[in-house]
Amino acid sequence: MVDMSLDIAGIRLKNPVIAASGTFGYGLEFEKYIDLNLIGGISVKGLSVKPRQGNPTPRIVETPSGMLNAIGLQNIGIDAFIKDKMPLLRKYDTAIIANFFGDSVDEYVEAAERLSDVEGIAALEMNISCPNKQEGWLVFGTDPSLLKRVVGAVRKVAKLPLIVKLSPNVTDITVTARAAEESGADVISLINTLTGMAVDIESRKPKLANITGGLSGPAIKPVALKMVWQSAQAVSIPVIGLGGIMRWEDAVEFLLAGASAVQVGTANFVDPEASLKIVEGIEAYCRRKGVGSIREIIGSLKIPAKG
C-alpha cells in the first residue's frame, strides 16, 4: 500500500489531487461522474461577496492543444454558496477549498472573513489574477507591492489555511512567490491561466467577446512546470502545481519538480473522470518505484551534475 495522504500547512488531503477552481463547478456537477470522496480536494468556482454575471459570449475558444476562456468569474456569490452548496458538499470526505476574489482589498477581506466561519471548508484559495478597480485596474497578482497589501490584509482575518494562487503573467515568478510568502500565505498554487488571444480572420474579429482570455490545457504545461520548479526552490511554504495536467504522468512531473500537490483543471472538461484516473496513476507509479509514501516523491527531481 502506498500512503497517498498529505498535510499541507494544516490542509489534510487523502491524496495530492485537487480539482482546480473554475473547471469543476461547485463539485456537485461532477457527483454523477466520479465518487468525490476519492479525490484529494475540490477548489470550487471562484466566489465573490456578491453574485457575478460574468462576461458576454463567446466565452471560450479552442486553440491548439488548449483553450482560451473569458468566463469573467460568473458565480452565485458567497451567500448562495454557503446556503445551497455547502450543505451538499459537506457530505463528501474531501477537502473543500473555497476559491475567492474581489475587486478591491476590502472585498477580498470581506470574502475571507465570511468564508472563514463556514463549517466544512478546509482552506481558502485567493485568486489574485483580477484587476483592482480602485487602483486603476492594476492587477493584484502581477504587482508585488499590491500583492503584499491584499494578501497581508486577508491574512489578518483569515482563520483557515490560506493558499494564494499566482498569476504566470509576470517576468519573474519567484518575485511574486516570495511576496506571497512574506505577506502571510501558507501555501501558493500556480499557475493560473496565461493571457492570450485568438482572431477570426474571416470576420476580422477577436474570437472572444472579451477580446483576450486565459489560456489553459496541455499547451501550457511546460511553462507551468518550470514556474512551479522555480517557485518551489524560492519559497519554504508548500507549492500546489497546476497548468495543463491531463494525465497522471503530468502530475508526477509536477510532484517531482517540487509541488506538494497538484490541481487538475481543463482535463475535467474533456474527461470528468480525469482527476480520479490521475490519483490511480500516481499510486501505481509509487508502487512501481517501490515508494511507500507520496511524500518521498515530492521534490525528488534529480538534476545531473554539470561538467
Partner: peptide, 27 residues
Amino acid sequence: GRMGCGLGACLSCVVPDKDNKYVTVCK
C-alpha cells in the same frame, strides 16, 4: 451552445433568460 464541458461546470454556453440572468444551454 459553445460548450467546454457539457455538464454545467465551465459556464461557457450561457444565454440570458427573460430576467437577463444567465442560464446554461448544456444543463
